[in-house]
Design a protein around this nucleic acid. Structure first.
Length: 456
RNA sequence: GCGCCGUUGGUGAAGUGGUUAACACGCUGGUUUGUGGCACCAGUAUGCAAGGGUUCGAUUCCCUUACGACGCCCCA
């Protein structure tokens, strides 16, 4: 049997419905913040990622999907979205547009050659946004709050925002040196991995799982102490703006982010949901003021954020967030003989064009089988086509909830269904409101007694 | 790149070195000449991930590969 590639997924059924819903919320929220949708290629010149991400980590050397095309060009499936957006900004000379900063968002698949585990696949879908062309801390705050608000709009409650500042390049280099000086005399007290990290990536030591409880880490120099005056002031402003927006955050000096291109603000948003595996970060981002110039453009101050949709969907499921997803069909058309079948085919089209969700029979089931199928589909109404009725220009309609049947004239069928189904929808909406009316504590926001049904 | 555990039908799964691979759900048909969801009856894997090995004989033991799950490294 032909299997899908390792670490890739087929998204279908209920899960696919959730994805579409999540993406619709992302689109709607981005539009409100006036971020414009951007699509860039799924593969780019290998060089873009090498120069953009930096050569220092394992990432570029062994964790990308590289290939040579038929023309001998070195290509790489994009492992992230930021580099492509920056390339596009530079190549299309968007920096020349008087309308600065340029605010864009994307949503697409990324490819990383890694060993799959919980919350980590080889093909993943990320959405993200970038603000290019402003160094004002107000953009840092906007990006962070936009990210948080998308999660909130989706109904996620258990999220935590961690922020930190790496300062400018000068601050960052000083800090890196201070860390190495601090850990070097104590190298034997660190785990094997950390001993290797010391020279390669000392900031990562702070994030080590093995040494997490080592007092050495708690007393290690903090990024914030190594910020120069300007960087410090900048960070304070970001925090002030976040306070104004009432975004809760925690300053976490261990948030370092792995890539070379980050400076100043960096942040991660965690899902604090039970059942998440080792990878519980929904998304993260930060400021990258050097990237555009590194790939050949003008120096451009930028900040961005990216988030994996797979993990997001996982969080929504684990948190059991109620989602407005409908599986039900309005009407299921049943028939037995060929004459009825032809009419069902015709009628289904008419009703669909009139705006109803209509299903009919495709596999020649018995009438009994069709009743069962209608239930599986959650059909609200059944139309039981009968040659005799049809000859009288009528059709038998059954309310599949009350089991009541009525003979309806075909001339008024659309009107009849519209009336019936509209009341049905109102019922559903009222039920949904009830579920959300209190926070689970029994005190109804609308005043009065709470009639919500809570499992606990 | 490293480690650990898995892979039996449409689904959940039991099981064994040896003629017919449990059980349940589902599905299809019948009892019910066009109104089911209950009940009863019947049908439903030429096969136990793939390849190789050990063996008289392997789904069952061993090896390799693929994929899945979880963790490490890394984390964009």
């Amino acid at each position: 049997m032909i299997q899908k590639p390792k670490g890739c997924n087929d998204i279908y059924g209920r899960e696919a419905k959730i994805w579409k819903y999540v993406e619709s919320i992302i689109d709607a929220t981005m539009e409100k913040y006036n971020y414009n949708y951007i699509r860039t290629p799924i593969f780019e010149s290998t060089e873009l990622f090498h120069r953009g991400i930096g050569e220092s980590t394992d990432i570029v050397t062994k964790e990308t999907y590289d290939f040579v095309d038929r023309g001998g060009r070195k290509m790489t499936l994009r492992p992230e979205g930021t580099a492509g957006v920056c390339r596009s900004y530079v190549e299309n000379k968007m920096y020349g547009d008087p309308n600065q900063p340029v605010k864009v968002y994307y949503n697409g698949t990324m490819y990383r050659y890694e060993r799959p585990q919980s919350g980590r696949d080889r093909e993943l879908t990320q959405f993200g946004m970038e603000v290019l062309g402003s160094d004002d801390p107000i953009t840092d705050a906007e990006v962070i709050s936009l990210a948080v608000n998308i999660y909130k709009m989706l109904g996620l409650k258990e999220i935590k925002v961690n922020i930190n500042s790496l300062g400018d390049k000068e601050s960052r280099d000083m800090y890196r040196k201070a860390l190495i000086d601090y850990f070097k005399p104590h190298i034997d007290e660190l785990c094997e991995d950390c001993q290797e990290r010391l020279d390669k990536n000392p900031l990562r030591i702070l994030d080590c799982k093995v040494d997490a409880d080592n007092p050495l880490l708690k007393n290690a120099p903090k990024t914030i102490d190594y910020l120069n005056e300007e960087s410090k002031k900048r960070f304070e402003q970001v925090k002030e703006y976040l306070d104004i927006l009432q975004i809760k955050y925690e300053v976490n000096p261990n948030i370092v982010r792995g890539l070379d291109y980050y400076s100043h603000t960096v942040f991660e948003i965690e899902a604090k949901v039970k059942g998440f595996g080792a990878n519980n970060v929904l998304g993260g981002g930060g400021r990258y003021n050097q990237l555009c110039s590194e790939i050949g453009g003008p120096e451009t101050a930028c900040i961005g954020f990216a988030s994996g949709i797979g993990r997001l969907v996982m969080a929504l499921e684990l948190e059991e967030v109620p989602l407005p997803i409908s599986y039900d069909v309005d009407l299921y058309l049943m028939y037995v003989n060929d004459e009825e079948k032809k009419y069902a085919l015709y009628l289904a089209q008419e009703l669909r064009m009139a705006g109803f969700v209509v299903e009919t029979e495709y596999t020649g089931r018995s009438l009994k089988g069709q009743f069962k199928q209608a239930d599986r589909l959650g059909a609200k109404y059944l139309a039981i086509l009968n040659s005799e009725d049809l000859n009288n220009n009528e059709v038998k309609i059954r309310n599949n909830k009350t089991k009541e049947e009525e003979i309806i004239s075909l001339d008024v069928l659309i009107y009849y269904l519209d009336e019936q189904l509209n009341t049905g929808y109102e019922d559903i909406n009222e039920e949904m409101l009830k579920d959300e009316c209190c926070g689970g504590d029994g005190h109804c926001k609308h005043g009065g007694e709470c009639h919500c049904h809570h499992d606990e």
